[in-house]
Computed example of a mutant assay.
Amino acid sequence: MSDVNYKEIVHNGLWKNNPALVQLLGLCPLLAVSGSVVNALGLSIATIVVLVGSNLSVSLIRNAVTDAIKLPAFVMIIASFTTCAELLMRAFTYELYQILGLFIALIVTNCAILGRADAFACKNKPVPAVIDGIMMGLGFSVVLVIVGAIRELLGNGTLFADMHLLLGEFGRGWTLQISENYPGFLVAVLPPGAFLVTGFLIALKNIIDSELQRREKLRQTQETEAVSRRVRTTGNIT
């Protein structure tokens, strides 16, 4: 593609075509590890690394790979970057890696990553492909972190707990506690809580989109009526 609209790429990744809220891809890890902010951030960083790396690599080889081996090649690239992310987490954030466990390796099967490689990266130059990877990764990560924050806050009454698992000593003391005697809300930290929070976020996005569409239609109607009034007044469109 010769003409790339970077504004549209950003809008698609963060809102219009958000992997978690619109495409509904990668929901397995999103629902499974979003019990806290630190877990969500850990998986988010790993996902962005794999998504950006795979998009860049796929874009670089787009003219050298035939359709017959395209998908196997993409999977191998994604698996390679997933392994790199997994090894880095084991080396620098081992305790967090143990918590996230299998879901780091399952990034290989994240349909959002393979989907971007096939739908965008293999058809565009490296720079747009990298930007698309960053935006799609950020869109997924924002939802993941919001879900993690809501579940941690409702479930445990804390926010940013155990951030040292990701940031080391710099992250100690970040914990915010809403109450000393908070009883906890068990449903929020259980799997049903993940489904409920994610469902509410999807519903909220749909409500916002409906309102934006209503306002756009109203604006177009007002503009049409204004033109009609000018035509009736002047006899021609100025």
Rank of each mutant, 00 (worst) to 15 (best):
L100G: 05
P128N: 04
Y97R: 10
A129C: 07
F120S: 05
K70W: 00
C122T: 02
R116V: 11
F103Q: 13
A91P: 12
L96M: 07
N110K: 01
I69V: 10
R90H: 10
M89W: 00
L114N: 10
A105K: 04
A112D: 05
A117T: 08
L106A: 11
F81T: 07
L106N: 09
C122N: 06
D118Q: 12
L102Q: 13
P128L: 00
C111L: 11
T109M: 12
A68Y: 02
L96Q: 04
C122I: 03
P128E: 00
G101L: 08
L88N: 08
F81H: 06
L106F: 14
T93N: 15
P126S: 10
K123F: 13
F103K: 03
A112R: 00
I77S: 10
D118S: 11
A79C: 14
L88M: 14
P128A: 05
A117D: 13
V130A: 14
R116C: 07
Q98K: 08
T93H: 14
C84Q: 02
I99S: 11
C122A: 09
G115V: 09
P128M: 03
A112W: 01
L106Q: 10
Y97C: 02
A121F: 06
A68Q: 09
L88D: 02
C122H: 06
L88V: 12
A112S: 11
V75D: 06
